[in-house]
């Protein structure tokens, strides 16, 4: 059952990501991304990371993607502005590179083929994640607040272009 769900939603996630890359219309691309993120959330549930799954749907598939769609619609791109679809050697190289990289990683993963160590009892719960963030990863967590401060200052400054 678990394996079947994993294969199903894993395939859907890959297809969704391909849709993001291949669709010409940015709105369609964004909608594909919502689908891919949703499938990822299901994969999180399958690994017992329930809080992460909820956050993935709420924050990414929800809030962030709404902003994405807003921006895309504000830009109001028309079909002719997107330019013709062309097949270039660079793109072929990129595809070949991706396939090679995938093979490079799939082989060791296949060989490794080990069951990961059992997760602790509070794994994936709100309490467990909270303990991790505020104990083990307190320093990166606090740094994120400074990172956000810098990002906000920068965004305000770029948006408000009056000297």
């Amino acid at each position: 059952m678990e394996l079947a769900l994993f294969v199903l939603f894993g395939t859907l996630a890959v297809l969704g990501s391909l849709g993001v890359v291949l669709s010409r219309n940015p709105v369609r691309g964004a909608l594909w991304l919502v689908g891919a993120l949703f499938c990822l959330a299901v994969l999180f549930i399958l690994t017992d990371a329930h809080l992460l799954a909820a956050l993935e749907v709420l924050v990414y598939a929800g809030a962030v993607m709404v902003l994405f769609l807003f921006v895309i619609m504000l830009l109001n791109l028309r079909e002719e502005e997107l330019g013709p679809r062309r097949f270039t050697p660079v793109k072929a190289l990129a595809v070949a590179g991706t396939v090679y990289l995938g093979w490079l990683m799939a082989v060791p993963m296949w060989k490794a083929g080990r069951v990961p160590p059992a997760a602790p009892a509070d794994y994936g719960t709100v309490e467990g994640v909270g303990m991790l963030i505020f104990k083990n990863y307190l320093l990166p967590f606090e740094m994120t607040s400074l990172l956000l401060l810098a990002a906000v200052v920068g965004a305000v400054m770029l948006a408000k272009r009056r000297m």
Binding site: Y137, L139, P140, M143, T144, L147, A150
Partner: peptide
């Protein structure tokens, strides 16, 4: 690793 990534972004 997480510390490296966050400080790189900062």
């Amino acid at each position: 690793l997480i510390f490296i990534v966050v400080s790189f972004e900062l």
